[in-house]
Design a protein around this nucleic acid. Sequence first.
DNA 1: TCCTAAAGTCATCGAACGCTGACTTGAGGG
DNA 2: CCCTCAAGTCAGCGTTCGATGACTTTAGGA
Lengths: 190, 190
Amino acid sequence: MRKRDREATRARLLEAARLRFAREGYDGTSVRDIAGDAGVDAGLIFRYFGSKKQLFDEITADIPADLLDGPEEELVARMVRSVVFADWTRYGGEHPLVAMLRSSAHEDTRQRIREEVCTTYVRALEDLAEGDDAELRAELLSAWLVGIGILRSVVATPALAGAGLDDLAPHVAAVAGDLLGRPMSGTSDA
Amino acid sequence: MRKRDREATRARLLEAARLRFAREGYDGTSVRDIAGDAGVDAGLIFRYFGSKKQLFDEITADIPADLLDGPEEELVARMVRSVVFADWTRYGGEHPLVAMLRSSAHEDTRQRIREEVCTTYVRALEDLAEGDDAELRAELLSAWLVGIGILRSVVATPALAGAGLDDLAPHVAAVAGDLLGRPMSGTSDA
DNA sequence: TCCTAAAGTCATCGAACGCTGACTTGAGGG
DNA sequence: CCCTCAAGTCAGCGTTCGATGACTTTAGGA
């Protein structure tokens, strides 16, 4: 028998739920699936998290984002790296925002995605843009990153799925520079 | 009592299912929901379509696409118009491809999206692009259109959700021209 | 060594799921 | 008019869902 450790079990449930929710979506995931993956009884989910929904909320509340630190002109490059080459195995191999779209039938989820996109992507890009429609251009660039993530991992179109960072970075940097009205670096040292 | 009309009832079920699947996703939609919307008994779904899955397949098999006819240089403008301003009320107000992403937990659905994206979007753009990585640049542009559709209707970021065709077309045309290596018109007379 | 609080298990609930087959109803031809 | 066949209905199958609460097991302090 496994050692009795509340925190460790909670963490195992979170880990399993993160993967299941990302891969199969909220409606496609059952609490028995999650508990089975974690190797514990399904009742613990309700003991520790209250409900399936609260477990989902706890997972979607802490999406890692490490885009803030680094030179401004490399921000877009860091975003591409994050979307395309970061290690998202804990989220089923996709960027968590992309995975969350699978649960976007629920308004709660759409709102969480909106907050995440606006606060960590649009706002950061908006500060780099110039002109009166800076927000729109920042959102257009965010849309592109989201779209690239989707076509790469969900749709898996041949060229994008096989593309490397070096293939993408120049194109993205060029368009980003054009869209933001200032030059962008295609590489980042992160 | 409603008139007995096999084809009309089948059409009502298809209409209701299209809306439900688009809004709530495959897993979030029950056959009783669909039948209830159509005002008929759920048993007819199995009589007419065999299974819930076959009903879903029949719906996703015929996604309208009217991008082919018109001048080449207006193709991108037509795509933007299709993604952003076409009337997709039958699909819950979103482009059917965007709505299908809600059911992307199933590999079958991902494959159908891939076919649709590649055959009607990437291929059409690829023919316009020049150079050896034409396919990649065509997919990058497709990714942008998909991302715009998602941020507009699913995520509903403020600027994009409120943007009109006139706000978007110039930016898209500029980037598309840059990405494809040839000038693109920002407007279409369609 | 007991006792207790907590960690984990288990049986089971009511509701909803996809799906089936027997049934009822109604329109059209003889 | 009535018979037939298909359209439509209905009760219910077996299963799975989220959730509950009583139960058993273990760790650790008195």
